[in-house]
Amino acid sequence: MTHLAIRGLTKRFSGQTEAAVADLNLEIESGSLVALLGPSGCGKTTTMKMVAGLLEPTAGDILFDEKSIINIAPERRGAVMVFQNYLLFPYMTIAQNVGYGLKIRKVDRAIIDQRVSEILEMVRLPGIESRRPSELSGGQQQRVALARALVVEPRLLLLDEPLSNLDAHLRFELRDLIRDIQQKMGITTVFVTHDQEEAVVLADKVALILDGRLRQYADADVFYKRPADEATARFFGGQNFISGTSANGTFEAALGSLKLPSDAPEGTGILTFRPENVRIGAAADGENTLQAKLTDKIFLGTQTRLKLAVGDDIITAIANPNDVEGYLVDQEVPLSLPPATLWVLTK
């Protein structure tokens, strides 16, 4: 159980004008599971490698339990990293791979064998000790890589895109496994992902990094309800952005006046709301009801996406296909935007 603090962490690679990671600050509670989320090249793996000690920061500090570890060699930090492409040693058996960290620590052979068996049991791969990495599927290899990291009981477990090389059903399976083991062992865990769904489902808290900067660090639901800025909202699937002014609990825009939640920021800004929170047709009642014209309707299987014009503004809505089955393009449709689902992004 280790508390991780990242203070002003910056990484600038030689020959590059922009910092890969810029002035990153993060507090990760002991025993929690945190996702570093962001698109490819945003600096999340760079951040993780700096925490592991595999990359030297240009500036800033990293603290484990309030003690700086910036000058401690990676092999003595106790931060074990699991890589995206498993990286099991191909010339070793599974038992040798899993027991590697213990052997390096000169642990007694009998204890290594016992710990290896226990940990393989934990990752639900019992009895594969004598097999070779090449004989395992991708999902099995990733579980072995996880076991190899867990067996040394690290202070901090760092998972770099642990699920991205796996197909859908394996991803779900391993996601649950990681969560279960993390809860059971209570190891402070940081994982990197570009998949927002994975971050939301798996993590206690999510840190969104865009262009090397931390945009928002919060519980997963906050990113949907109270995004920090337009880029954050867009990253989480936000599609509705309407310019106007927020004052006295009301948002004034070209499409009319809309009632806001009581904690909405005031001033010139952008109104945002999620497509799934737009109520349409019979469901549209109460406050913030508007008359719109249906301009586009796309069936997505389990959902239907609708484009609705209110004056010059286009609102995107997502609805249950059964609820909007009868609506036709160019038809007038009532919609409502419940105040609690609205948020204002001030500049």
């Binding site: 490698k49 592991a52 000690g53 595999l54 060699a73 990676p74 092999e75 003595r76 931060a79 074990v80 990293m81 890589f83 492409n85 990286l87 040693f89 010339y91 590697y100 960290g101 390096i104 620590r105 190899r148 990291a149 040394v152 760092l158």
Partner: peptide, 23 residues
């Protein structure tokens, strides 16, 4: 990356060379 894995698991420079790089 293989050496980084070993380092992260606690292997020092010589151990990394002997158990990872050389094989």
């Amino acid at each position: 990356d293989y050496e980084a894995v070993a380092q992260s698991l606690g292997a020092n420079r010589w151990q990394r060379f002997r158990t990872v790089t050389l094989p």
